[in-house]
């Protein structure tokens, strides 16, 4: 079984501009995939299509063998959780506690069981001490941690991060990324799809998909994808530090090609 199977997916908001063009993509269960692309490349649209917030014009999306359509929408949303970009606009409850409870209420979890779940997941994201706080007293990073707790409390098979760290400061960003990788360690079966601008985050993923103009431009392991240096710069994407370093040093006649991490690069440079 695949986590996501997308076939010939097309989508447009207006008649004359297609955002996604005949897209094909498969994502394995338990994998950690980063989807990168410049603004307007269609990456966030893709996330909304997967979770059924938008409807495809043509083509099909399957989430764990369930076709995404009106009839299956409840099943889809049980399997997929998503954290959006804006920390304020996805904080629904009046306190941290109520926000985590919101999804549980929708799931019709019995009230007696909710407190245990809320305690468990707020502890996991380090927000247990803030359970009775209102969102206006929390930082952006803390709100995103609450959003993550709210989504994980519903026990999804697939977690989509739709630029979840884009509006955070470096500290908040780091906290979220650490948290996500901890979640992944605790539950290796969790499929993570991270839509991101953060090129260093993408470099650490097991697979990178580059979207450009509604099509997949590159798809593969990070080292392979980022070897397409010029093409990526051409579509306004950044390059991971190590890749750029190796590239620019090579132009100077210093070859580090097989250095797979920074320590190795340091060792070779100082030989």
């Amino acid at each position: 079984m695949k986590a996501i199977e997308i076939e010939n997916l097309s989508f447009s908001y207006t008649k004359d501009q297609e955002v996604l063009k005949q897209l094909n993509l498969e994502i394995e269960l338990g994998s950690h995939v980063c989807i990168i692309g410049h603004n307007g490349s269609g990456k966030s649209t893709l996330a909304k299509l997967i979770i059924g917030l938008l409807e495809a014009k043509s083509g099909s999306i399957k989430v764990m063998e369930n076709e995404v359509n009106e009839k299956n929408i409840h099943t889809i949303r049980e399997k997929v959780g998503i954290v959006f970009q804006n920390p304020d606009n996805q904080f629904i409850g009046s306190t941290v506690r109520d926000d985590i409870a919101f999804g549980l209420e929708n799931r019709r979890i019995p009230q007696e069981k909710m407190d245990d779940v809320i305690d468990e997941f707020s502890k996991k994201v380090g927000m247990f001490d803030f359970l009775d706080q209102e969102p206006s007293n929390l930082s952006g990073g803390q709100k995103q941690r609450v959003a993550l707790a709210g989504v994980l409390a519903m026990n999804p098979d697939i977690l989509i991060l739709d630029e979840a760290t884009a509006m955070l400061d470096p500290k908040g960003r780091k906290e979220i990324l650490t948290l996500v990788s901890k979640m992944k360690n605790d539950n290796p079966n969790l499929t993570i799809i991270s839509i991101t601008h953060d090129i260093e985050e993408a470099y650490l993923a097991s697979r990178v998909v580059v979207l450009s103009d509604g099509k997949i431009m590159f798809d593969g392991i990070p080292n392979e994808v980022f070897s397409h240096y010029e093409e990526l710069l051409n579509i306004d994407l950044d390059i991971p530090f190590l890749v750029r370093l190796k590239r620019e040093l090579k132009n100077k006649g210093i070859d580090l090609d097989d250095a797979f991490n920074e320590e190795e690069a340091v060792r070779r440079l100082c030989q």
Partner: peptide
């Protein structure tokens, strides 16, 4: 307006269905 749209998306994505049955956390 932008906020309300994003909020609606977030609520829907977390399984909110205005016509559906829900349980209640606050008793």
């Amino acid at each position: 307006i932008q906020r309300s749209e994003e909020l609606a998306n977030a609520m829907e994505a977390r399984g909110y269905d205005p016509s559906g049955q829900r349980t209640r956390y606050r008793k």
